[in-house]
């Protein structure tokens, strides 16, 4: 069994009109099956409102399924007994860098999770140091979060999660509010965690270039899984991605266009180097 597994997961919420009467139900997540293995780097793609964030919030027991089941490390998230276990093992980073930092000083914020878990003082310090070093923010440990850039704030948030020693980290559009530099910083930190520390990563995004290094990707649309496979397999289907309000990196699109014009190229080229190699130049 994988670290996160879902079977026919459904999440519905009630829409109400201005008087508070029930207008109908919306299925934000619709019969999703999922199996994430320990150490995987999985990307979840989808346009705004495709249900990807709602799905992510189930992995940390912030939301509970209306139907179906989701297990984190084999534990059913609806079982209250496991709630804190699940939250500790599946850490979560959110979109807005300002709205998830609790501490007034970087190191105090990173210590917040371990404090809640009841970790002894001395060990909290060790965890804070090691987590901040892992994301390259150690020298900012005495700074106020307000003075950091967006990318730095997100790295602090990631450190705050890894200080809880999770097995898995779920990032819900961590780069949506950042500039290109900040995005690169965050993605680099996430990849390093996955590769060096073996932490399972679930990255939710709509920036296509961020998923190139993922082991696997799923594309969500209207609450269900519309596509899944390796990034290469996903990027091979340019037309389908466009239908799903997404796009592909320019190089993929160019290769696709060249292929349509009769040049012999495989599908799903992801980088410039790959294109040159395939053209045998």
């Amino acid at each position: 069994m994988g670290i996160i597994e879902a079977k026919k997961l459904v999440f519905e919420y009630i829409r109400r009109d201005e008087e508070g009467n029930v207008e109908g139900f919306t299925r934000a997540v619709d019969e999703v099956d999922l199996d994430v293995k320990q150490g995987d780097f999985m990307a979840i793609l989808g346009h705004n409102g495709s249900g990807k964030s709602t799905l992510a919030k189930h992995m940390n027991a912030i939301l509970y399924p209306t139907e179906g089941t989701i297990w984190v490390e084999g534990k059913d998230t609806t079982n209250e007994e496991y709630l804190w276990d699940i939250r500790q093992n599946a850490g979560m980073v959110f979109q807005n860098p300002d709205n998830q930092i609790i501490g007034q000083v970087v190191e105090e914020d990173v210590g917040f999770g371990p404090e809640n878990m009841g970790v002894p003082t001395k060990e909290i310090w060790e965890r804070v140091e090691e987590s901040l070093k892992a994301v390259g923010m150690y020298k900012y440990r005495k700074h106020s979060p307000n003075k950091l850039s967006g990318g730095q704030k997100q790295r602090v948030s990631i450190a705050g999660v890894i200080a809880m020693h999770p097995k898995c980290i779920i990032l819900d559009e961590p780069t949506a509010m950042l500039d290109p530099n900040g995005r690169k910083e965050v993605i680099r930190a996430v990849r390093a965690l996955n590769q060096a520390e073996g932490i399972t990563v679930i990255l939710i995004t709509h920036y296509m270039e961020e998923i190139i290094h993922a082991d696997r990707a799923i594309v969500m649309d209207k609450g269900h899984i519309a596509m899944q496979g390796t990034p290469k397999e996903i990027f091979s289907q340019v037309e389908k991605l466009k239908e799903l309000r997404l796009d592909v990196p320019q190089v993929t699109l160019l290769a696709y266009e060249l292929k349509k014009s009769g040049i012999n190229l495989p599908d799903g080229i992801l980088t410039c180097e790959e294109l040159m190699k395939e053209l045998k130049l």
Binding site: N60, I62, W84, R87, Q88, G91, M92, F94, N96, D98, N99, Q100, I102, E107, E108, G111, F112, G113, P114, E115, N116, M117, G118, V119, P120, T121, I124, W125, V128, G160, V161, M164
Partner: peptide
């Protein structure tokens, strides 16, 4: 309100459950 909502979620996700059994980084 939006920020408060987000923050509450972020705190819960980081295992915040009130003062009970909480340790201190800087006692």
């Amino acid at each position: 309100f939006r920020r408060a909502n987000d923050l509450a979620m972020a705190m819960e996700a980081r295992c915040y459950r009130g003062g009970e059994n909480r340790t201190k980084m800087k006692p």
